[in-house]
């Protein structure tokens, strides 16, 4: 039983008085395996949110069909086993965190002690136990995102669908969301989330799909697709490096800049990375950080499809 199967899903919007038609999603075919973290990539307007809205029954498909846990998405009952977080979520701001989760739990038909226990557990998971009696009106964006994740998990869903769960968050907030997603994976849940922030996706996804202008451009494991994207440069920061070492490294075609105790070494490609590191360490230097700069997957596929020449 696949958690999610999408077949030929198409959505055409009619906009304005002229009823001009816009194809937001064009015959999407996709299958997701149980227990995987699946990243759904694409620029703004690529059709990610449209796909998710179709799955959640917020908009109706023009053509095509999708099944969640082998039940058609047209069946309202299927939502009993899905958790959903919309893009930049807005909730009832006059409710406190606890009331909010209670309300949403009731919508799943959960109540009583089961619900109270679940709420305690979820507030703990998103580290918001202290804020349980605070109204959502007073929440920061990061807190809203976390309570949004908590509401998506209130029914202990088998499939969790998150629309841009990391957008608009600071680095700490993004790390928190990443950790929560990985924890859900450990619990055996399937996670489908959209994003346009590549590093986040690369870090946690088992497989990804790339959507360009409503069309699916590629599906595969991160290794398969990330391998296709080439490293454009590498930045290495080191400490306690002697001048002679720097000169030697520069002979290999690297550029070096001193910044106080640190030295920033920039390499054109990854061929000599090991040599540089070895040399620094041999001379009692210390590596502070190493950052490979890659061409983004999206850019890669845009180039592949010639879509960026607009």
């Amino acid at each position: 039983m696949k958690p999610l199967r999408i077949h030929g899903l198409t959505k055409e919007y009619r906009i304005g008085f002229s009823r001009r038609s816009v194809l937001a999603l064009d015959h999407l075919d996709l299958e997701i395996d149980e227990g995987e973290v699946f990243g759904f990539l694409g620029h703004n307007g690529a059709g990610k949110t449209t796909t998710i809205k179709l799955l959640m029954g917020l908009v109706y498909p023009t053509a095509g069909e999708a099944w969640i846990l082998d039940r058609s998405i047209r069946d309202v009952g299927v939502k009993q086993s899905i958790g959903f977080l919309p893009e930049s979520p807005f909730f009832y701001e006059y409710l406190t965190a606890e009331e909010f989760l209670t309300f949403y739990g009731q919508l799943f038909g959960i109540g009583g002690v089961t619900l109270t226990k679940k709420i305690d557990e979820l507030l703990e998971l998103v580290s918001m136990t202290d804020a349980r009696r605070r109204p959502l009106r007073k929440f920061s964006k990061g807190m809203l995102q976390r309570i949004g994740i908590a509401q998506a998990l209130i029914n202990d869903p088998k499939l969790v669908i998150l629309d841009e769960p990391m957008s608009g968050l600071d680095p700490v907030g993004r790390r928190d969301v990443r950790d929560i997603i990985l924890r859900l994976k450990q619990e055996g849940k399937t996670i489908f989330f959209s994003s346009h922030i590549l590093p986040d996706v690369e870090m946690i996804c088992d497989r990804i799909a790339v959507l360009v202008k409503g069309r699916l451009k590629a599906v595969g494991t991160v290794q398969e697709l990330a391998g296709a994207s080439s490293v454009t440069s590498i930045e290495l920061v080191a400490q306690d490096v002697s001048e002679s070492t720097v000169a030697g490294i520069q002979d290999w075609g690297a550029t070096a800049t001193r910044r106080g105790h640190h030295i920033l070494i920039k390499l054109e490609d990854d061929k000599r990375v090991n040599d540089v590191i070895e040399r620094i360490i041999r001379q009692n230097g210390r590596i502070v950080s190493l950052t490979p700069h890659k061409q983004s997957l999206e850019e890669f596929f845009l180039t592949e499809s010639g879509m960026n020449r607009i």
Partner: peptide, 14 residues
């Protein structure tokens, strides 16, 4: 308008 409906419609309630 406030988009609270997104999470409600996504719940198993007709």
């Amino acid at each position: 308008e406030k988009r609270t409906i997104y999470t409600i419609i996504a719940k198993p309630i007709p």
